[in-house]
Design a protein around this nucleic acid. Structure first.
Lengths: 195, 195
DNA sequence: GTCTATAAGATGATAGAC
DNA sequence: GTCTATCATCTTATAGAC
């Protein structure tokens, strides 16, 4: 179990930078913001992450791995597809709840036009991961009869992913998590087989 | 009918700034970007829009009015709720198609944490407008039997708005309009009453 | 209304001492 | 690994001539 206590400087930089990125966007924070919060100097951050692109690439990789780990945890917990989808939606709800953050990759998607080249592929990779996982869960749910939807599982996975990302984006504008939750609830209810 | 020819400087500034904002975000463009594109000087822009916040407020108001006008046009064209929703979705598709733009307010929603105070309320206002309109159309469609959905019309309006905003956000990452269109298609098909 | 000139501050980044 | 010092550049913004 990871401790609550601060680990090495590199991790503390990543933690602060991650939050700043999720709240303010990639162009909305600077090395100075991180430095002042950690009470270190600007140059120290450059020692660990020479360029902002380096920092961004590391943040992206870490977030993607962390999310993949969460998906594995949901899988291992078992239960039917309905349950998995609800836990998946809760993952997103927790992000919004935590200081009104946006999904890191949703935020980067909006910043895409100004992103350093090496970061762009990572954003798509994250969405690909999520679509693939959702596609499998949806297919499983349809086969077992607990979910109902038209079209291919993969196409519906895209709808679910888009809807949740959009729900985060809009809910954040109102600083109201419950707005996210009510949209997620409608989305899932429509999927769950009635009758 | 508005002509294609450039009008006064103020409007040309707004047109360029709008595109830059929709592609790069509010923190992703500068007065210098606008100036070089219009081949005028930085100071000329400040003459028309003293601060960037002023420019942002005007862009927001203009976009909101323009969108409201589009909604009225859809209303006047008549037809059933299905048709109105499809035209509404096409509004969004056209934005993405045009140089891979994001909805101006969706973009501002992601920038919200760094936005000048006077701009924040405008973003919510845009979403409120859209939710209200969608709510009316959904209700009308359910009453006339061409649409089917659970829960309140207003709650479903939030789902539709969130899904379309999210679909734009994700589709932009792939620079692929068809990705937006397929998600919108699934969303609408699920709404349309199957006998 | 547009220009030149200029300012004050932020930003990403590097060199080199400790 | 962290610091001080310094950098070129960008960004928003203003003063004042034309």
């Amino acid at each position: 179990m990871p401790s609550r206590a601060p680990r090495d400087t590199q991790d503390r930089i990543l933690d602060v930078a991650e939050r700043l990125l999720q709240v303010r966007g990639f162009n909305g924070f600077s090395y100075a913001d991180i430095a002042s919060e950690l009470r270190i100097r600007n140059a120290s951050i450059h020692h660990h992450f020479p360029t902002k692109a380096d920092l961004g690439v590391r943040l992206l990789a870490r977030y993607r791995e962390s999310f993949a780990h969460s998906l594995e945890t949901i899988e291992r917990a078992g239960g039917d597809a309905r349950r998995k989808l609800r836990q998946y939606a809760r993952l997103y709800a927790n992000v919004v709840r935590e200081k009104n953050r946006m999904c890191l990759c949703g935020m980067l998607a909006s910043d895409l036009g100004t992103l350093p080249r090496p970061m762009r592929t990572g954003v798509k990779g994250f969405f690909d991961d999520n679509e693939a996982w959702l596609g499998r869960v949806l297919e499983e749910g349809r086969k077992s009869g607990v979910l109902r939807f038209g079209g291919s599982a993969r196409a519906h996975a895209r709808l679910v992913l888009s809807s949740l990302e959009g729900a985060m984006l809009v809910a954040r504008s109102y600083e109201d998590v419950s707005r996210f939750e009510s949209v997620a609830e409608r989305l899932l209810e429509d999927l769950e087989a009635r009758s």
